[in-house]
Nucleic acid binder design. Sequence first.
RNA 1: GUGGGAGUAGCUCAGUUGGUGGAGCGCCGGGUUGUGGCCCCGGCGGUCGCGGGUUCAAGUCCCGUCUCCCACCCCA
Length: 410
Amino acid sequence: MEYKAVRGVEDLIPPESLKFEKVVSTFKEVVERGGFKEVILPIFEEARLFTRSVGEATDIVQKEMYVFEDRGGRVIALRPEGTASAVRAYVERGVYAREPFTKWFYVGPMFRFERPQAGRKRQFFQAGAEVFGLSSPGIDAEVIKLAQDVLRRLKVEATLEVNSIGCKECRPEYRKALLVYLEKKLELLCKDCKERFSRNPLRVLDCKVEGCREVVKGAPKITDYLCRECREHYEKLKEYLKLLKVEFKENPLLVRGLDYYTKTVFEFKSDKLGAQSTVLAGGRYDYLVEELGGPKTPALGFAMGIDRVMLLVEEEREEREGVFVITRGEEAYRKGMEVVNLLREKGLKSEIDHRQGSFKAQMKAADRLLYRFALIIGEEELQNGFFSLKELSTGKQEKIESLKELLARL
RNA sequence: GUGGGAGUAGCUCAGUUGGUGGAGCGCCGGGUUGUGGCCCCGGCGGUCGCGGGUUCAAGUCCCGUCUCCCACCCCA
């Protein structure tokens, strides 16, 4: 094969593409019901936008971004996630000045230069939702509930974990306490965690290595260090989740990989996906709008991994629909094309077999393409001025005298 | 970036100690000269991932490389 899709990217052809559409449309329906409106955001941005928002020290920025210089000398990055662009647009367009609060959603490809694996591609798709201008834990609960609704409607089973990772006030306190604890156990940690100890100690908490997990068991918990405001926010959130009948598990070890999160973080995981088990995740990011040049604005959001969700969605069998026109001879073919055209104008799905093969071949196509009806126009029909309409599922065939009758019959 | 497994027809996969590449499904056609699904028959379809090496001879052995899968890592 001379030409191949590049490593880590893949084509979606039917029926996979139909599944994609199903996931996206379900997501849209659910969030639109919650008052969210769609934004179409650029696929590339200045690289420094992501460095600033996602975090200088994160792996995404350090080694996974597609960065290049464009012909004008700008340093560009293919977006590795959606929130940064949404916030940038929110600030740049002055949306905060026109609306009391803002609910946006987006769908599209993201890019990360990672080692490909099932559920982890270099081009992958996310559907995300963001809320700006609301600080109440009630909206946190509502957003989590919407996320759960999306997964439920797609019949994707996933467990929800929530945590609070505090704010500028309390997280440094916790960090300090954690460092003090970890320093004593440094020798017991794995190589990566020794590294994390100095760079990003919170990430030691979700290390998978047995020895580290042992150490972590005795570590101080962030929830014990939350300031009054964060603690109340977290307590209220849990109350509201119960009110909305959302089942969740508290996980004090849940920390996210992006620097901008504050207070609420959450994650929906599936146990059917192997290592890449997170299907949807998000949290609050109350400082990001300000950091990107906007006014102080509380915000939160989540992103769903469409590719991962697709691995868990069952294929829907298609319903038989529409009319497949079968003809013999030039005159019938012309008549057939007119009929197809008419049916489409009337809003019906219809095709004609342009191959002009045997009736058997054409009938077979009507069946394989899952048409509900085959409309036959042959010599006999032409001569006596009628159509034969066969319903594929029952095999019953009837005479149709006119186009009017045909339309009435369908 | 690290470690392991795998690449043979459109798909799923057989292929013996190296000796002229197969099956099932799918596709096209025929059995039924105007009718799909089930059955029977036939046909199309392969640079054996790519490149190099060993050999009289390589799908098979060796080296390199690319891609996919699994795990680490990371994350949605």
